[in-house]
Design a protein around this nucleic acid. Structure first.
Length: 885
RNA sequence: AGGCGUGUAGCUCAGUGGGAGAGCACUACCCUGACACGGUAGUGGUCAAGAGUUCAAAUCUCUUCACGCCUACCA
């Protein structure tokens, strides 16, 4: 680090400093957790980003908040651990590698499973985890020595252990079921991986002829190409129209199918008759089960019509539609068509329409797991912040459906299930078998892998070493806080709860902090196709990590959207510069750290800023404890800019620059204490600039990152000092206001007079006069106890404690000033009337709390005073106008 | 269809029973020896609309309107 005495550059050279400071933190092992150390555990597991991923705004926000919490608690002395890592992201990663293979003209099928997986691992080693370096640029203080990957050996063992345990407990089973199939990705998807898109579709009315001359029946469908797999037509039992229909013929294949009654059918929709296709619709599947109907497919996994469709075999499911409709029409079986707006299920990755398909898959039975998770939130073992999300959470947990966990991919945790070729039994095992445990027949392993969310569901304990009883696991489970966006409550948060409670018999975390999603400045989702993506690294390059983090924190309290714009970051980068410049002023004046315990402040400016610091410190502590990052940021912004820089530094200058060595020293020591504590308060949100400035404090030891976080000294609260500085501010503002209102020439030195009947106030002000002169741009300040001593042509500002008279000089825009005064008077009169009316209301005086009534009286008095001020100004302007004529 | 949420200054938002606020933007003036990425003083709002509860409503209740999100079995 540069030596403390070196003068600061004009602005914070953040590129160089961020790199240097971060390297120092790492070299000094400051991120590393030690279970043996004392302290309350404070543990966060990172939501593992995809190993293929790049840092985007969502990550930036998420990790800024986590880092702020970790840094805060580290400084509080807690035993903090922030576990980083990445997710193997099955389908996403497989797709990336397949794409790079395609460039070489190879498919994964040609390569074979084993070779392909080698390629993926090689890709992961070379390109994966780029995001880790990007998190470091953000300042993330993760314990990198504990970095994990959802497919590393330990986590894979955990996955297998959990799968087998759930299987043994009857919570996992393999079943034929209609699942969501993506014909493009060639895999099953869970229900929540299906997204709904509103699309303009068409409702086709198709005639099914009656069997043996029975009357025909018309059904309405959006999917005429699935008629081949129809096994029934269903109508509502209440529906009188179809009482006499017994059997109808499926078009093209002329199969006779029964007309059945099922209350699921909506009589109002279409014709009130529904074609039942159990193999290609989830609801039809349920109807089929209820009525014990046969089930078979007419669309294959590649999305083409199969053999059941006869001449149409091989056609794409959508391309076939036109042909089929034309043929239906030719047969006179297409009664009519009408447009229909419907929500089409599409693959969350490639937006290909989902094909509901009958298939053999593995399911996790979620009902009991979900109940225990919901109970944990209901009884407060897990707190959701903000609590408004609880209803959404319960709504899902109470209506949860079984979780399809098998995926027809290669990249992932292969399901530990083997099927015996001779006895046909399926074995789910912890250790790889050589032959069938029952009959020693040859075994074939299930080729499917698990949903990537299965392994991330174990993240809070698998990363701590489970299933081994590690020191980390004992010390750090359950984790303390989980910070994430609300978009993955169901994908991830709920599943961690279910898995943690089932496997560990204990909640995975005590608090879930849900933050907004980052949008662009106009509230649009950031997406490549819209071209509105702001790259966090570009922002960091341009404005610095501190300004960026401060911006994110300051906006993290708002509702569900965080609208981010570069202008806003630019604004907060000025705040960082302001702090830097305050340091440029302060550092050369400092000799060394103040003695401990910190001496009581002796002078008014010191008493005042210490009091204000105590208030701000307590507010920041409270805000960070309550995850109100925005409140913490706002408090710091105003304390540093308005109170520390604008008032305290100005008030302290005469002492710091003065001739009295004793005063000088105590002022410098106080400045040191206040400034260094301010840096500490700001550190969790803006770690780089604060660490850098801390290192420049003469005699500062160690790192700010591990310095104690200020708690706020209650004994520093000093109401008298705050009141007295209030008088100084009153005088100062009165003169400044007069200067501005009456357009006094900037160079013109005024000679204001302060009048008060309170001798103590006068002597206080007299003592501070030299200081005030500079702040007001006055040549002299005089004092009077006598209201009659007012100079002619002086503007008056009245305060409750006295008056400030400022003699006028120079050019004044009388007309404009008169307008302003009249407007002000009107406003004040209104205010007065309102207050008077309240006080005249007996019900108010009787029922309102006395302090509120008192407040209103004070308000009335203050409005009267301000009205007097304004009236005097008006009269003065009137006089001046007449004199000018 | 149901659920959740939002509506406050030109923009972004804080404020959950008692003075309508902040940042940015805007206006005027000022390079005063840390900072013009600065300072000082200002302009700007029927708190979406209506009704109710209350001595008192941006805040609580109801209704309406607008927008957003989530969930869902209307083929």
């Amino acid at each position: 680090m540069p030596s403390p005495n070196e003068t600061l550059s004009k602005t914070f050279e953040r590129h160089e400093a961020e790199k240097r400071v971060y390297a120092l933190w790492e070299e000094n092992n400051l991120f590393r957790a030690d279970p043996a150390r004392p302290g309350e555990p404070f543990v966060i597991v990172i939501p593992p980003p995809n190993v293929t991923g790049n840092l985007h705004m969502g990550h930036a926000l998420d990790n800024t908040l986590q880092d702020a919490l970790i840094r805060f608690h580290r400084m509080l002395g807690d035993n903090t651990l922030w576990i980083p890592g990445t997710d193997h992201a099955g389908i996403a990663t497989q797709a990336v590698v397949e794409r790079s293979l395609a460039a070489e003209g190879v498919t994964r099928q040609e390569l074979g499973r084993e070779k392909f997986l080698e390629k993926v691992w090689a890709w992961k080693e070379e390109f994966g985890g780029k995001i880790i370096g990007q998190l470091k640029r953000l300042g993330a203080s993760c314990d990198w020595s504990r970095e994990r990957f959802t497919m590393d050996a330990g986590l894979s063992r955990a996955v297998r252990e959990v799968f087998v345990t759930l299987y043994e407990d009857g919570l996992i089973r393999q079943e034929d079921y209609v699942i969501n199939w993506c014909p493009r990705c060639q895999t099953a998807l869970s229900d929540i991986e299906v997204e709904r898109e509103d699309r303009e579709g068409t409702l086709y009315y198709i005639v099914y002829e009656g069997v043996d001359g029975a009357p025909p029946l018309t059904v309405a469908t959006t999917r005429p190409e699935t008629v081949f797999a129809d096994v029934a037509v269903a109508v509502n039992p209440q529906d009188a129209r179809y009482r006499d229909h017994k059997f109808v013929k499926v078009p093209f294949v002329n199969r006779a199918v029964p007309v059945i009654f099922d209350s699921y059918v909506d009589m109002e929709f279409g014709t009130g008759a529904l074609k039942v296709t159990p193999a290609h619709d989830g609801n039809d599947f349920k109807i089929g089960k209820r009525h014990d109907l046969p089930i078979f497919s007419c669309v294959d996994k590649d999305g083409r019509l199969n053999r059941e469709t006869g001449p149409y075999e091989g056609l794409d499911r959508f391309a076939s539609r036109a042909v089929i409709l034309a043929d239906l029409e030719a047969k006179g079986l297409l009664a009519k068509t009408e447009p229909l707006q419907h929500a089409l299920g599409v693959c969350y990755r490639c937006r290909t329409p989902i094909e509901p398909l009958l298939s053999l898959q593995w399911f996790v039975k979620t009902e009991s797991l979900a109940k225990s998770a919901a109970d944990a939130v209901r009884d407060g073992r897990i707190k959701i912040v903000p609590s408004s999300w609880e209803n959404t959470f319960f709504n899902w947990m109470d209506n949860i459906r079984d979780w399809c966990v098998s995926r027809q991919l290669w990249w992932g945790h292969q399901i530990p299930a083997w099927k015996c070729a001779s006895c046909g039994k399926t074995h789910v095992l912890r250790e790889d078998p050589t032959d069938c445990p029952d009959c020693h027949g040859p075994l074939a392993r299930d080729p499917d892998v698990l949903d990537t969310w299965f392994s991330s569901g174990l993240w809070p304990f698998s990363t701590l070493g489970w299933p081994d009883e590690t020191e980390d696991l004992k010390r750090y489970y359950p984790t303390t806080v989980l910070v994430t966006g609300f978009d993955i409550i169901f994908f991830w948060v709920a599943r961690m709860m279910m898995m943690g409670l089932k496997i560990m018999k204990e909640v995975p975390f005590r608090t879930v902090v849900l933050h907004p999603l980052v949008r662009d400045a106009s509230g649009q989702k950031m997406s490549k196709s819209k071209g509105n993506v702001i790259d966090p690294l570009t922002i960091i390059d341009e404005y610095g990590a501190d300004a960026f983090r401060f911006t994110l924190a300051s906006q993290a309290g708002s509702g569900r959207d965080l609208k981010l714009s570069a202008e806003r970051v630019a604004g907060y980068s000025r705040f960082i510069t302001k702090l830097w410049n305050a340091a440029r002023f302060a550092l050369p004046l400092l000799q060394g750290p103040p003695p401990t315990p910190l001496p009581k402040p002796q002078t008014l400016p010191d008493q005042w800023i210490r009091s204000r610091l105590a208030v701000a410190t307590m507010a920041v502590n409270a805000a960070l404890r309550e995850f109100s990052f925005d409140r913490a940021a706002e408090t710091l912004y105003h304390f540093i800019w308005d109170e520390f820089c604008d008032w305290y530094l100005e008030l302290a200058k005469p002492l710091l620059y003065g001739d009295d060595p004793k005063l000088k020293e105590s002022a410098a020591q106080n400045l040191y204490a206040v400034f260094s504590e301010t840096l500490a308060l700001l550190h969790p949100i803006a770690p780089f600039v604060t660490e850098e400035l801390y290192s420049r404090l003469p005699g500062a030891k160690g790192f700010l990152m591990v310095a104690p976080f200020p708690r706020g000294r209650a004994e520093d609260r000093d109401e008298a000092a705050e009141k007295n500085v209030g008088y100084l501010m009153d005088v100062c503002r009165a003169v400044r206001q007069t200067r501005a209102d009456f357009g006094l020439a900037p160079g013109a030195k005024v000679a204001p007079v302060v009048q008060s009947s309170d001798g103590e106030i006068l002597s206080l002000l007299r003592e501070r006069a030299p200081l005030l002169l500079k702040l007001m741009g006055a040549s002299s300040l005089s004092f009077s106890g006598d209201p009659g001593a007012k100079p002619a042509d002086a503007a008056t500002v009245i305060h409750a404690w006295g008056e400030v008279w400022t003699p006028l000089a120079g050019q004044i825009d009388l007309e404009a000033e008169m307008g302003k005064r009249l407007k002000e008077i009107a406003k004040l009169e209104k205010e007065l009337a309102a207050a008077r009316q309240k006080l005249q209301n007996p019900a108010y005086v009787r029922k309102a709390p006395p302090e509120i009534v008192e407040e209103t009286r004070e308000k009335l008095a203050s409005a009267e005073i301000r009205l007097q001020s304004a009236q005097r100004s008006r009269d003065l302007i009137g006089d001046l106008t007449r004199a000018a004529r």
